[in-house]
């Protein structure tokens, strides 16, 4: 059974239809890459999956672990195991990184009817995860993302992912704005989590991230629909040829 099953998904933003019939199946442990030109609906797909307000599903279904995702609020989806790594992580003034992580972690435990974690135990756990991503204690003591560089913000997203251990991680343009060193760190963090229990949906414009995180499946999204699907070689083909052939199909 698929972990995530998207069928004929149509969605509008501000009354404009952006997604026009998406079909996508992601199995447990699979890594899927969705590539496409700017404005093709890639980010809309990630927000629709995460449950952002203002992104309205007008047709179709999204099943996650057999549950209908559309009826769940953003926080419930997160606690069910959907994680969105933001393209532009937001600065959260006044909320300390460590506190934020603990709140999120405990929210999930409460959702699952489990006991909250001991603060010291949690601290140790986070530190071990932060180490892999080369993140200092100081970064965890600061307000979330405030004053962080672009690379630090992206690493912070991956740290949150590593701590929350989602069943499905959606990485929205995680490679954008990263230099090569940061890209490697982020990719290492992602690969660390890779296992048969963790699936990923990597949304990207460029192929380069896929050099570090090898996908099982690659899809081309253009004009609100998946135009082509294939293996990882499709990414290389796109890198060589660009998205020109898909923009032709607009008419």
């Amino acid at each position: 059974m698929s972990l995530l099953s998207i069928r004929d998904l149509h969605a509008t933003v501000g009354g404009n239809e952006i997604l026009k019939g998406i079909n996508l199946e992601i199995g447990p442990g699979e890594i899927h890459a969705v590539m496409g030109p700017n404005g093709s609906g890639k980010s809309t797909l990630s927000y629709v999956l995460a449950g952002r307000e203002g992104y309205e599903v007008t047709r179709g279904t999204i099943a996650f672990k057999g549950k209908d995702l559309i009826d769940l609020a953003a926080d419930e989806r997160a606690n069910e195991g959907v994680f969105l790594a933001f393209q532009y992580p937001v600065e959260v003034p006044g909320v300390v990184g460590m506190t934020f992580l603990r709140e999120a972690y405990n929210a999930k435990l409460r959702y699952l009817g489990k006991q909250e974690i001991d603060a010291m135990e949690f601290l140790k756990f986070v530190r071990s995860r932060a180490k892999t991503l080369n993140m200092s204690d100081d970064m965890l003591k600061r307000a979330v993302n405030v004053g962080f560089s672009g690379g630090e913000k992206k690493r912070n997203e991956i740290l949150q992912m590593a701590v929350l251990e989602p069943d499905l991680a959606i990485l929205d343009e995680t490679d954008s704005g990263l230099d090569i060193d940061a890209l490697k760190l982020v990719s290492d963090g992602v690969n660390e989590l890779r296992s048969e229990n963790h699936s990923m949906l990597i949304i990207t414009h460029y192929q380069r991230l896929l050099n570090y995180i090898q996908p099982d499946h690659v899809h081309v999204l253009a004009h609100g629909k998946i135009q082509r699907s294939g293996g990882k070689e499709l990414a290389l083909e796109l890198e060589a040829k660009g998205y020109a052939e898909f923009s032709e199909e607009a008419a």
């Binding site: 203002g54 953003a74 006044g94 909320v95 999120a104 959702y111 929350l164």
Partner: peptide
């Protein structure tokens, strides 16, 4: 809204998210 959504996307419910953010604002 973007801030609230960021917290919700990490599993924190909307009401708690608002409280956290406003609380942090005043704490300053």
């Amino acid at each position: 809204d973007e801030l609230i959504f960021y917290l919700c996307a990490r599993g924190i419910d909307r009401e708690s998210a608002r409280r956290m953010l406003i609380g942090a604002y005043i704490s300053d």
